[in-house]
Design a protein around this nucleic acid. Structure first.
Length: 362
DNA sequence: GGCGTGACGGTTGAT
DNA sequence: AGATCAACCGTCACG
């Protein structure tokens, strides 16, 4: 075990990997780092070099890049939670109706009917055993009304999605079953992430890396002083990413609606602050020594990369930028892992671990 | 030396 | 409120 605990105070914890990078076991790398990994890879930098420069294990780099190649997203998957229920009230209601109309119906027949009637689809149809359990536990004596129905039978309403009830919308789930935010569950926009960025010259990794926002607290103005939970944060970014397409004029229509939590229009400053961890952030582990990487005041990036420069990229950006290129083109949308369920606070301030990315080796 | 992959220990959030 | 479960995480080591 080369890992060593870094915690020096009760407020900071984390571990240092073999490369000297700080990470929080069990928690995703900051999106900024993830983004950096992808961006560096797009600049042609080898994964092994990215690994060394960012001090992220090569396995992680490989994983992030593979995920990006597969899904077009740099974002981590949804952590935690449980599988969505399939035995929704609507399903139970329909099962009861089937049972009432045909008391001798088999569970597998009910299952088929749920599919045939569009009450469920292949992703959320209950198993036969679940149906049997429903019949046994929830329906039982059909002569008795139950909680799900008080009077007339409502017709099977396949279109009655339980999105508003259940955070996961099966029809929107990826084949991998990754949970996806229901469109109606928590309207989200990512307008604040709709930023273009200038990217430094690819001539040197050092410049490319220029992670001032991580390194230089003075560059982090407007840090809210509160870092939301990582999942919230990542969910924000996850939700935010589609807007990048809007920036690219690819999928703007999908992001202009549901703006419920507009973010400051200053995408640069807001995102820089969002991506910079305050020293009192939740983990504290990425708020290590700063300033040694990019000299404050000398941070000015020019849009030079043909790969990563975009319209309106005149503004210098910091490491925390979520760049449109963080996603692949829309054609990838189909196989992207859907975003994780959005939860309560994720629309609030974006904060990313401050990074201890002292890259003196460069 | 670079890279893909699985085990591992950990976190998270819904149930 | 706490336990359980199943998702995910990044690191590490191996091939």
């Amino acid at each position: 075990m080369s890992k060593s605990h870094v915690s020096v105070t009760e407020q900071t914890y984390g571990e240092v990997n073999q490369l000297g990078g700080v990470f929080v076991n069990g928690r995703p790398l900051p999106n900024a780092i993830r983004l950096r990994i992808v961006e560096l890879a797009q600049l042609g930098i080898r994964p092994c070099d990215i690994s060394r420069q960012l001090r992220v294990s090569h396995g992680c780099v490989s994983k992030i890049l593979a995920r990006y190649n597969e899904t077009g997203s740099i974002l981590p998957g949804a952590i935690g939670g449980s599988k969505p229920r399939v035995t929704t009230p609507n399903v139970v209601k329909n099962i009861r109706e089937y049972k009432q109309s045909d008391p001798g119906i088999f569970a597998w027949e009910i299952r088929d009917r749920l599919l045939a009637d569009g009450v469920c689809d292949k992703y959320n149809v209950p198993s036969v055993s679940s149906i049997s359990r429903i019949l046994r536990n929830k329906i039982g004596n059909l002569s008795q009304p139950n909680q799900y129905e008080s009077g007339k039978h409502a017709p099977a309403q396949a279109s009655l999605s339980y999105n508003h009830i259940y955070p996961y919308s099966y029809p929107n789930m990826s084949p991998t079953g990754t949970k996806m935010t229901s469109p109606t569950a928590v309207p989200v926009t990512a307008g604040h992430m709709s930023i273009s960025r200038a990217w430094p010259s690819a001539h040197t990794v050092t410049n490319i890396l220029g992670i001032r926002a991580f390194m230089d607290p003075t560059a982090i103005t407007g840090t809210e002083g509160y870092a939301p939970k990582m999942e919230e944060w990542s969910s924000v970014n996850r939700a935010a990413f589609p807007s990048a397409h809007g920036v690219n004029g690819i999928d703007k229509s999908t992001i202009e609606g549901d703006i419920k939590y507009p973010q400051p229009s200053s995408t640069l400053s807001s995102y820089v602050s969002a991506c910079a961890y305050s020293p009192t952030n939740q983990y504290g582990v990425y708020s290590g020594p700063t300033g040694g990487y990019v000299a404050p005041g000398h941070h000015h990036w020019q849009p030079q990369s043909p790969v990563l420069s975009h319209a309106g990229s005149g503004m210098g950006m910091h490491a925390g930028d979520i760049h449109p290129m963080a996603f692949k083109h829309q054609a990838r949308e189909g196989d992207r892992k859907p975003p994780s369920p959005l939860s309560k606070q994720q629309h609030e301030d974006l904060n990313v671990h401050g990074l201890s990315l002292s890259t003196s080796s460069s």
